[in-house]
Design a protein around this nucleic acid. Structure first.
Lengths: 194, 194
DNA sequence: TTGTATATTGAATATACATTCAATGAACGA
DNA sequence: TCGTTCATTGAATGTATATTCAATATACAA
């Protein structure tokens, strides 16, 4: 393995460790030394890999943004084009909730993105996260569901915002209590149903 | 007005200012100087009224806890005993959402309580907020709704947690975007309906 | 093998804030 | 009116922790 690959690995290890801690304890409560100790590595070395804590967060958010981008253009987006709106959303949630245990980082990333977008966090990360827009996509989906007569009336954008805000709330709850069971995705989709 | 009353007034002003800022910018991003400037008052004077930032937060959380307590034992609780479960929950949400504009502090308090309970925050406040338990109350309500055949099957406790987590998510969204319209409470109650 | 670049460490430094404090002003009781 | 107590200020201090740095070890290339 080349030196560059090694470094890349190490960076990933730091990113994943930080992600976990940020979601578990919050950004401000997670000290650089906490991350370093968890990786593990010396405090000083952290700055060989990331120039600051803010940049580390921004990097995570960038990953999250790219992932989200990929999701809404990749094969999943194709599936959406064909599947009924309610089925698509249920499938998405099913996936995300099961990730909570199998691929915690995907789940944590989702939670972090939401947190960064909302609560007080460094501005760069904030605006990066805010630029990710799953609302328009979902609103379009909801509008289609309304045309098909399966979703209730109402402003699709507002409905989409409420839908994701609810998902966010539940995921944060799950993140803070690892024992908590996932909800039935149908409960959430029922918010939208006629 | 007596000296003591004056002091009490001033304390309340600080508490309300802090509440707003904590919800708008987050606890850690809100500096003592920000609160002082917003009240307005000198930085040093803050400590004449509250011995520390943590205590200030704890005080707010205590208020919130008492308020919640009052809610679940006061006249509202009586109403609940008689009203159908779905009607009760819808009424509660209706109230809370309309407070967002008329009595922002009630709304903000609700948001703050949820945030403190979850994300990384000083331990004293955390445990205070965690001690407030609206879950059991709601779970009982849901169980009754299930008996009456209006709510879907499922663990009432899990359903209650998901319900409040969703409400929390939506309220945080509303808190960060003051322009956002409130959802129709029915959307949320629909999570529970059969 | 040797020299150069990179990785690693932990202690030293810098900084951002919370908190303290000495001084001043305003109210209030005697 | 005078003295005592509380309110208020802004600058000084203390502290936590992010960040830097000089020193050392390790890998790699020639």
């Amino acid at each position: 393995m080349t030196r560059k690959e090694q470094k890349e690995e190490r960076r990933k290890a730091i990113l994943m460790t930080a992600l976990t801690l940020f979601v578990e304890k919050g950004y401000y409560d997670t000290k650089i030394t906490d991350i370093a100790a968890a990786v593990p590595m010396s405090t000083g070395l952290m700055f060989h890999y990331f120039e600051s804590k803010e940049v580390l967060l921004a990097e995570l958010v960038k990953m999250g943004a790219e992932g989200t981008q990929a999701l809404s253009s990749g094969p999943a987006a194709q599936a959406m084009a064909s599947a009924p709106a309610d089925q698509y959303l249920k499938g998405f949630l099913q996936q995300m909730f099961s990730y909570a245990k199998e691929q915690p980082w995907v789940f944590n990333m989702f939670v972090l993105m939401g947190q960064v977008r909302r609560s007080g966090m460094p501005e760069e990360a904030r605006s990066l996260a805010a630029s990710v827009n799953s609302i328009d996509f979902t609103a379009a989906l909801i509008a289609r569901g309304q045309k098909d007569g399966i979703f209730r009336e109402g402003d699709p954008v507002l409905m989409a915002r409420c839908f994701w805000a609810s998902v966010q709330g539940i995921m944060e709850e799950m993140a803070m209590d690892k024992e908590m069971e996932a909800p039935d995705p149908e409960w959430l989709v029922a918010m939208l149903r006629k």
